[in-house]
């Protein structure tokens, strides 16, 4: 039963991500990437990692992909993209090498020794509680560091974006004196 579900999900995910890579249309690429992200959460659900599955849905499908989509609104999403590919061989070589390295990194532990969980969850806890316990005991410092990093990124983003936020863009362009602008540029 689980095997059927796993292979169905895997084939679908792989197929969708292949569409993402090979499609020349932004909209297809984005939709298939989003659909793949949703299906990945299916893999988590199969492994009884309900919490991670839901988080995958919220974070990757709900938030990150939507931000991608937001970026893609600046292009005409219904047209095909013409790729500018000056040297196909070097692109092929580089991407091939990086793919091989990635596969090697993730496959090495699986081949070398069977993966063992570093931490075994305490009995009688459900999935969410187990994750919480591990995050706030053994991995507290990495967790907090990640949180601080996100905070730093957020503050930086706000600072970068909030320059002249109180003025409207049209006002800025109207008030701008061409000579002053030139001086500022120099």
């Amino acid at each position: 039963m689980e095997a059927i579900a796993f292979y169905t999900f895997s084939i679908l995910i792989t197929g969708l991500f292949l569409v993402t890579v090979f499609s020349r249309n932004i909209l297809y690429a984005m939709s298939s990437l989003a659909a793949g992200m949703v299906l990945i959460s299916g893999l988590f659900f199969i492994m009884r990692a309900d919490f991670l599955g839901a988080v995958q849905l919220v974070v990757y499908s709900g938030a990150i992909m939507a931000l991608y989509a937001f970026g893609m609104m600046f292009f005409d999403a219904t047209r095909d993209v013409k790729e500018k590919n000056s040297s196909a061989s070097s692109v092929f070589l580089l991407s091939g090498i990086s793919a091989v390295i990635l596969v090697a990194i993730f496959a090495a532990p699986a081949i070398g020794e069977h993966i063992k969980p570093l931490v075994t969850a305490a009995k009688g806890l459900d999935n969410t509680q187990a994750i919480g316990e591990i995050l706030f005991t053994k991995y507290l410092i990495p967790f907090e560091v990640a949180a601080v990093m996100l905070l730093v990124a957020m503050v930086a983003g706000i600072v970068l974006a909030s320059k002249k936020m109180d003025q409207s863009l049209s006002e800025i362009y109207q008030d701008a004196d061409p000579e002053n602008e030139l001086k500022e540029q120099k």
Binding site: L27, S31, A34, V38, S41, D50, F51, A54, V55, L57, V58, S61, G62, A63, M65, A66, A69, M72, M73, D76, A77, T78, D126, N127, T128
Partner: peptide
């Protein structure tokens, strides 16, 4: 056992409907 989170997640994924609809129509 994560019902609430799942509901929120699915409603979050629901944003793809309007999002893709708006982008797909020219």
């Amino acid at each position: 056992n994560i019902g609430l989170l799942f509901v929120i997640a699915m409603m979050g994924v629901g944003l793809y409907g309007p999002l893709l609809a708006g982008m797909a129509q020219e």
